[in-house]
């Protein structure tokens, strides 16, 4: 019986859900923060994440990590990879703001126009990655770039060893070091982001723009800087999520951002869009629900469970689980 299976495997499914949910939550923060200050859904955020997954793999190649790398060397390589992924995703997010949104918003374009621009930017970024081989050969640099541009429309795998050791058992399920690293790293990043928004001067500037952009201007807050900062933070978190995702899944491709993006956006809405802590709650709830749901109905129902959950929760709580927006979030 499926139900019996879920009971037997409950801890395994639950931990698996938490791990995926942490990744969703990290990406969801980027959606929710940009929405908070601009009331704009940055649909290209999924590609910001996707660039991070590639940066992770390429960084590991660059530092020479492979399946034989182990111990301290492996941890150090992954840390470097995460840092490079964060910088890459942060850079892509900044570029996106500069090229796809700022020119429009400065001219007073309606948010709907920016939304179309976001969808367009998403396709462009995804295809840029998918066509990098063709681009490189057109520029005559494909020999130089070698494996970095080879088979650019196919899956790219994490080069390091992905067998993980069990650290401790909970009711018969072995929690691995990977599970612990992913959940802990995601939580730490989110706490750091939350504290930055709440405690620092720049964070207060972000909240001021989210709550009342005109008043924020009157206080001397430079809204362009605040918007840039918001994209940057969202990008850094998406880059970190990308490395954690690669640890968990091991594979990426040029269009890998799409599904993750939709899921993370769902998590943001589920928790209450514009609400930082909502993104965390939404991500974890979504991850656990779809994991348990796939145990109950079969893994092909995974996405169905996720979206049915979204619809049901929004029926009863239209503003999401935590409701309040970033604008009204308390200090």
């Amino acid at each position: 019986m499926a139900f019996q299976y879920v009971l037997d495997q409950f801890v395994s499914l639950f931990v698996g859900g938490l791990v995926f949910g942490s990744v969703y939550a990290l990406i969801a923060l980027g959606y929710t923060m940009v929405y908070g200050v601009l009331q704009l859904i940055n649909f290209a955020h999924s590609e910001v994440f996707m660039f991070g997954t590639f940066a992770t793999v390429w960084a590991l190649w660059l530092v020479g990590a492979d399946a034989t790398t182990a111990g301290v060397a492996l941890v150090a390589s992954l840390a470097v990879a995460m840092l490079i992924a964060m910088i890459t995703s942060g850079g892509v997010a900044l570029l996106l703001e500069r090229v796809a949104y700022r020119p429009l918003l400065n001219r007073g374009a309606p948010r709907l126009i920016a939304l179309i621009s976001a969808i367009g930017a998403s396709f462009v970024l995804s295809e840029l990655m998918g066509l990098r081989g063709a681009l490189a050969s057109a520029l005559g640099v494909d020999d130089v770039l070698g494996r970095y541009v080879a088979r650019s429309r196919e899956n790219l795998g994490l080069p390091t060893d992905r067998t993980f050791t069990v650290q401790f058992e909970v009711l018969g399920y072995g929690v691995t070091n990977k599970d612990i690293i992913i959940v802990l790293a995601a939580l730490l990043m989110m706490i750091a982001a939350d504290q930055f928004i709440r405690r620092t001067r720049l964070g207060r500037g972000i909240r001021a723009v989210a709550q009342d952009p005109e008043s924020a201007s009157l206080m001397g807050v430079n809204s362009t800087r605040v918007i840039q900062l918001t994209f940057l933070i969202g990008g850094l978190l998406a880059g970190a999520a990308a490395t954690l995702y690669m640890l968990q899944v091991g594979l990426t491709r040029y269009n890998a951002g799409f599904l993750l993006g939709v899921k993370a956006f769902t998590a943001a809405v589920l928790g209450g869009i514009g609400n930082l802590r909502g993104a965390l709650v939404g991500g974890l709830v979504l991850g656990v629900a779809e994991s348990l749901g796939s145990g109950l109905f079969g893994s092909e129902w995974r996405h169905v469970v996720a979206f049915v959950l979204l619809v049901v929760i929004l029926l009863f709580r239209p503003t999401g689980l935590l409701g309040e927006s970033l604008g009204k979030a308390r200090a």
Binding site: R207, A208, A331
Partner: peptide, 8 residues
């Protein structure tokens, strides 16, 4: 007034 409603 334009105060920031979510801040103390």
């Amino acid at each position: 007034r334009g105060i920031f409603p979510g801040m103390t």
